[in-house]
Design a protein around this nucleic acid. Structure first.
Lengths: 351, 351
DNA sequence: CTGTTAGCGCGTTCAC
DNA sequence: GTGAACGCGCTAACAG
């Protein structure tokens, strides 16, 4: 019922092998023959059988992209950029590659499950994005999974994730970005800063927090553990954490959030508490997602070149761009100072 | 080198067929045998070969999801919801299904290309999301492609897209939502409303615009074509269109945007023009994406149940939920009145 | 409940 | 430059 390569061959009066060569284009074929084959393909409305092709060639045109949450623009932007670079020449049958997006929801188990599923599909490459869970058992499990994938010929790239020996890595300088951000706040005169951290045991959370604390330490500001609250990377967490921080220390003059989404929640909580931004409390985010500039006042944050990093990850995954020296490249964030941060009201007296 | 099903069979002292049955779980196997097989699988670290399995069974565990732009939360939210429902029991080898997300960028050619690629992969199902391009040649081309996919056993679902005879459809009531939104503005006393429409020749654009115009007509307000500007669904377009509208008619008191993202751009343009929202100009969006509530003032918009619709589309695609009567279900939007809309300043006099 | 036997549709050696 | 033959790894009948 379904038309196969053999049918095309029969109609074009050539052997199946020749049809295969024409379709994959990586073999010399006489122009006239090629045209005849192509016409037959067209007339028969033939579509290559991907699984059969993958089986015979022992490799597929699938590229896995692991994300924590595809509904979050942070991942959506990277996924989009990666996907835009995986097509083009080089693959089987036209070089079109398909992106398999896997939503792990930040769950270690699902991450492993998806990696196995991708291994099963004989994925040509896999890109893991975003922060990783720090549990050592999981790190080891992922590492061994990555080794197996690599052994099977799957190219591995980490994007916005800490380096792993098994893969080429484009990591974000979360620590440095956070450091500069808090430094900026301190320079404005802030001394009591609340910090809304991400979920515990995530590398992103830890690195950003470390950068924040390092900046505090460098300025001789004692780190008050009561001024750090952990929570998920969402708006509600930012809202709740802000109320909590305000309650713990009504005198704080600035709130640094783990990311922009959380910062938006913080802004809402502040407004609902009758506090003005930045007059009463400064707020800062991280990532510089598209909506950050539309917050009122516009959000001071650290811009991560998500699209650029994703695009590069995609090219590296396809072998179209050389891996960075040592297999690791660090991508820096850029401090974006906007209206949500200003000197605290007491700065005149205090400074 | 790579371990195959035969290796597992040998180690478990059973036939390859039995191993297959255990792995796919859709066939009676003695508990003791199953356990032996499972142990062998574990010891050998065996991973099923997806392509081989798909070839033999003539169906794969891949589900295609076509989106215009995965970096846009509108699509990210739907994709996430769809994906959350495609796993679970029913498929081969544990029922885990993989989501192949295809970014068409709104291009008809890429849409067709991706459909062909999905056909090549023998996708178990394909969900097309968001508005469609209205060019008749393209509509026909997509229709014929969908027929072929359906003929090959691929389940087809349209989510947030106008009905097509070839697929089960969950469509959004864009027209009705837009109608209610503009009605709300008119009730507040607005008479000069600017409309920032989406790209031309897209169903979403047309339906929302039609709803808007119908509301104007119902209120006896003449439709001034100069008060409608088309543009892409992004922030910059909203910004530029607003400046243009302001220039064309400085007396307008409200701006209705094609979606929330565009509305955000409109707000920025208004602020930069020294106009207050909603005192000088009211602004309304569409979709109610997560950030809409964080705009200042919070955005009046029409909430589309993206996650619910996506989840339902996923279930329908998997045959886990019965198709709606007639194969078509219309999902209504809900008007969310918030701070960005209010009576125009002249309302006291005018009304 | 389990083993045997055929393909699934294509890529890839080899020869010619 | 082209054809013939084999096998990729698995599932699906069919027996038993």
């Amino acid at each position: 019922m379904t038309v196969t390569l053999a049918d095309v061959a029969a109609r074009a009066q050539v052997s199946p092998a020749t049809v295969s060569r024409v379709l994959n284009g990586n073999y010399p074929v006489a122009a006239s023959t090629r045209e005849r084959v192509l016409r037959a393909v067209d007339e028969l409305d033939y579509v290559l059988n991907g699984p059969a092709s993958a089986l015979a060639a022992a490799t597929s045109d699938l590229v896995g992209i692991l994300v924590n949450d595809i509904a979050d623009p942070f991942f959506g932007i990277m996924a989009s950029a990666i996907q835009s670079e995986i097509g083009g020449p080089g693959g089987r049958a036209g070089g079109e590659r398909l992106a398999v997006v896997c939503n792990t929801g930040g769950s270690p188990e699902r991450e492993l499950t998806y990696l196995t599923l991708l291994q099963r599909q004989r994925a040509a490459a896999v890109v893991l994005t975003g922060g990783a869970v720090e549990d050592s058992a999981h790190v080891e499990a992922v590492g061994s999974k990555l080794c197996k994938l690599a052994a099977a010929g799957t190219r591995l790239v980490l994007c916005g994730r800490p380096p792993a020996p098994e893969a080429i890595t484009l990591t974000f300088d979360n620590r440095g970005g956070a450091h500069r951000l808090t430094e900026h706040l301190i320079a404005l005169g802030h001394r009591r800063l609340g910090y809304i951290a991400g979920p515990v045991e995530r590398t992103t959370t830890r690195h950003r927090l470390e950068g924040h604390r390092a900046a505090l330490a460098a300025a001789g500001i004692a780190d008050d553990p009561r001024l750090t609250v952990h929570g998920p990377y969402d708006r509600r967490a930012g809202y709740a954490a802000t109320l909590e921080l305000l309650c713990r220390d009504p005198s704080l003059t600035a709130i640094v959030a783990a990311n922009d989404t959380v910062a938006l929640g913080a802004c809402a909580a502040l407004r609902d508490s009758g506090l003005r931004i930045p007059e009463d409390v400064s707020v800062a985010g991280f990532d510089d997602l598209p909506f950050a500039i539309d917050a009122v006042p516009a959000l001071t944050t650290v811009r991560l070149p998500l699209a650029e990093a994703g695009a590069r990850a995609g090219r590296v995954a396809m072998g179209r761009e050389e891996a960075p020296p040592g297999g690791i490249a660090t991508v820096r964030g850029k401090l974006m100072v906007r209206g949500s941060t200003a000197a605290p009201r007491s700065a005149g007296r205090a400074g």
